[in-house]
Computed example of a mutant assay.
Amino acid sequence: MRHQDYPQPGRDGQDAQIRTEVIRAPLVATLPYAATIFLSSFLLFLVQPIIAKQILPWFGGSAGVWTTCLVFFQSVLLAGYAYADWTTRLGSRRQAYVHVALLAASLATLPIIAASGWKPQGNEEPMLRILLLLGATIGLPYFLLSTTTPLLQAWYWRRFESAVPYRLFALSNFASLLALLGFPLFFEPAFDLKQLGSAWS
């Protein structure tokens, strides 16, 4: 964006104000994107230890439990990226309809507290039961959260075609790291898992 008027005597203050507005406008417009991406990435990685710690006593602390949880989260994350790419090709209106419908459906799965009915009875296949439990408890909310960063980056690029959203991607990584470090250092000692699950929801 360029301002075409040349400075004239007596207009220095006005020109300075115009230049300031031109410089600050992109930053102000970027803040909603940045805040939403930061929050979604933070919640995306905070929920992983919350739900994993909820079901850990039910299935034991073996490496298989953690590996199954990791496979689930990574698979859903990849599916979220694929969904973001697919819906971006649908056009803005269709994309909005699909996404709003899924957001409304995800409300039925909240709060993210594993129901006691998922506890193993002793003769089930634990890996399959863990995957089904995670899918029913956190699947859709986690899936939609995983789409937030790629969708907002695509919308950001669509709005500001000359601006590459690399900084938003870096902000997403920072929020993810903050959540993973914050859980054992702050959230887990200060709150129980039920409180964390309700607050996250």
Rank of each mutant, 00 (worst) to 15 (best):
Y6C: 06
P9K: 13
P9H: 13
G13R: 15
G13F: 10
Q14G: 03
D15K: 03
A16K: 12
A16Q: 13
Q17I: 06
R19N: 05
T20G: 07
V22P: 00
I23M: 10
R24M: 14
P26L: 12
L27N: 10
A29G: 15
T30M: 12
L31N: 08
A34H: 01
T36N: 02
F38I: 07
S41C: 15
S41I: 03
F42Q: 02
L43F: 13
L44C: 08
F45W: 10
V47L: 11
Q48L: 10
I50L: 05
I51Q: 00
A52S: 15
P57M: 14
W58E: 11
G60Q: 12
G61W: 04
S62D: 15
S62K: 14
T67E: 09
T68V: 12
T68H: 04
L70E: 13
F72Q: 04
F72H: 05
F73N: 03
Q74N: 15
L77C: 09
L78R: 08
L78I: 15
A79S: 10
Y81Q: 12
A82R: 08
A84S: 10
D85C: 05
W86Q: 08
W86E: 04
T87L: 04
R94S: 14
V98G: 00
H99A: 11
H99I: 06
V100G: 05
A104P: 03
A104T: 10
S106N: 07
S106Q: 08
A108E: 06
T109I: 09
I112R: 02
A115P: 07
S116E: 15
G117K: 11
G117C: 12
W118F: 14
K119A: 13
K119D: 06
P120R: 07
P120A: 11
P120W: 02
P120M: 11
G122M: 09
E124N: 07
E124T: 06
E124R: 06
P126N: 07
L128R: 12
L128C: 10
L128E: 09
L131N: 09
L131E: 08
L132D: 03
L133R: 03
A136Q: 10
T137Y: 01
P141I: 02
L144R: 05
T147P: 05
T149E: 06
L152K: 00
Q153P: 01
W155H: 13
Y156F: 11
Y156K: 02
Y156M: 04
R159V: 13
E161W: 07
S162R: 15
P165M: 08
Y166W: 09
F169P: 00
F169G: 10
L171D: 00
S172M: 04
S172L: 04
S172F: 02
A175Q: 00
S176M: 06
S176H: 03
A179Q: 02
L180T: 07
L181A: 11
G182F: 00
P184N: 06
A190F: 02
K194M: 05
G197C: 04
G197F: 01
S198H: 11
S201W: 06
